[in-house]
């Protein structure tokens, strides 16, 4: 807890507004000017806090991606019924027969 508060005080502005804007494109989020400003401040606080992880030596530690580490869960290679197309499409915002409808991708 002590080091946590020290880290909060020692927060530095490492993420620029431009960088946050670039991340918003990667994240497919449209942010307003106000959003960008708030997001830059808040992300800097949080990133500043998590940077304390760099203090810990972890050279010979294997990363742990899961709480329970299991490998090679196989399913039998056989055909099974799956969700019918019509049911899968019932929640689509727009559809055209058996397809999802989206704005034109190529040209106008």
């Amino acid at each position: 807890m002590k080091s946590q508060q020290a880290w909060r005080r020692g927060k530095k502005m490492s993420l620029t507004r431009n960088e946050v804007e670039r991340v918003s494109l990667l994240a497919r989020l449209q942010l307003t000017e106000d959003d960008l400003e708030t997001m830059t401040t808040q992300l800097n606080q949080i990133v500043g806090y998590v940077e304390q992880l760099a203090q810990l030596p972890t050279d010979n530690i294997q990363p742990m991606a899961h709480g329970v580490e299991r490998f090679n869960v196989f399913a039998n290679d056989e055909r099974r019924p799956s969700l019918p197309c019509d049911e899968a499409l019932t929640n689509a915002p727009r559809r055209d027969d058996d397809c999802y409808l989206v704005p034109a991708v190529l040209g106008d």
Binding site: V50, L53, A54, L56, T58, I61, Q62, P63, M64, A65
Partner: peptide, 8 residues
């Protein structure tokens, strides 16, 4: 880094 600390 976080995955490694997770193991610790």
């Amino acid at each position: 880094k976080a995955l490694k600390v997770r193991r610790l």
